[in-house]
Design a binder for these strands. Structure first.
Lengths: 158, 158
DNA sequence: GGAGTTATGGATAATGATATCCACTATCGG
DNA sequence: CCGATAGTGGATATCATTATCCATAACTCC
């Protein structure tokens, strides 16, 4: 409201979750550990533990413990939508009733909240129709999350 | 991420700001005081002071002090977009560069962040094309923010 | 000009999201 | 079985948002 960077349409938690599952989608086959994912996606490893747990409980990823443990997508990357990932960690909240703090008699929203809910619905639809496979480049070919991430990988693993 | 209600696509501050300007749009002519707006829109009066100040600095509302003071829209309600109100208090942040914490060499976003930014752009467009007059009912006729708000007004002012 | 009213601006407190840390459990390889 | 590895779960710290409070400035009416 006043000075510098803060407001985000998507929470930091959602950011981490999406980076993680995209990275997993780009590296199928063997499980990746939390440390590996954290390193690649520039997420704090300790916090990522919580995020991954939420993804596991939601059935988006499959976790394995022990020496060859780590995380894999629970299904193929074209069977998981971005919306599912978002909802696993920070559910998108549609506006079903008037947010004024009253028992909602109203079944219909006022023009303002109808507009806002329409906007949320748009997002929901956009995320729901996007699959993880849409974000990994065609043919399972490995693509970096961003150009910048590619640079990091190059620098970190000579 | 775990148990109950939290995540919102729009911040509480944005909610208050929008309720306030919609209420102002529905009551043109004379200025409304912070207390009046707070009462009608169920917003905490003290916090609303800050929100209104931000709206004033952004040129969305016009403030007057003293005995017949209060707030009025700075322009007519069909000359103010919802986006302008949102940006006045909690600017929508487009994703211009990779959020990974590196100097952004990359001019192009990766598929993930392109998708996310597209979603944000959709919201921006939807809010930008909606005017306050679109939210007040046709012909300047007074409509409540929500059905619930109408009930409150009825109960509060017999 | 004085009294009362109302926004302004800053300081401070409470709340929720984010981040860190540690003990525990499951799994694998010997 | 033993030790090492890696996820699980909970406790705690940090930080931004939200909320409250107070002193001050501007304005109206008398």
């Amino acid at each position: 409201m006043d000075n510098d960077i803060h407001y985000r349409m998507f929470s930091q938690t959602v950011e981490y979750a999406l980076r993680a599952v995209v990275w997993l989608a780009q590296h199928p086959g063997k499980p990746l550990t939390r440390q590996q994912i954290a390193g690649a996606t520039q997420a704090p490893a300790d916090y990522l533990a919580k995020v991954m747990r939420a993804l596991g409980q939601a059935g988006v990823v499959q976790a394995g413990r022990g020496v060859h443990g780590g995380f894999m997508l629970a299904r193929s990357s074209d069977a998981i939508s971005v919306l599912e990932v978002v909802n696993a960690v920070d559910p998108i909240r549609r506006i079903h009733s008037c947010p004024l703090d009253l028992p909602s008699h109203s079944l219909r929203l006022c023009p303002l909240h109808r507009k806002l809910d329409d906007a949320v619905a748009q997002i929901e639809a956009a995320l729901g129709s996007t699959r993880l496979s849409d974000l990994t480049g065609e043919g399972g070919q490995v693509r970096p999350l961003c150009e910048a991430a590619q640079i990091v990988r190059g620098a970190a693993s000579p």
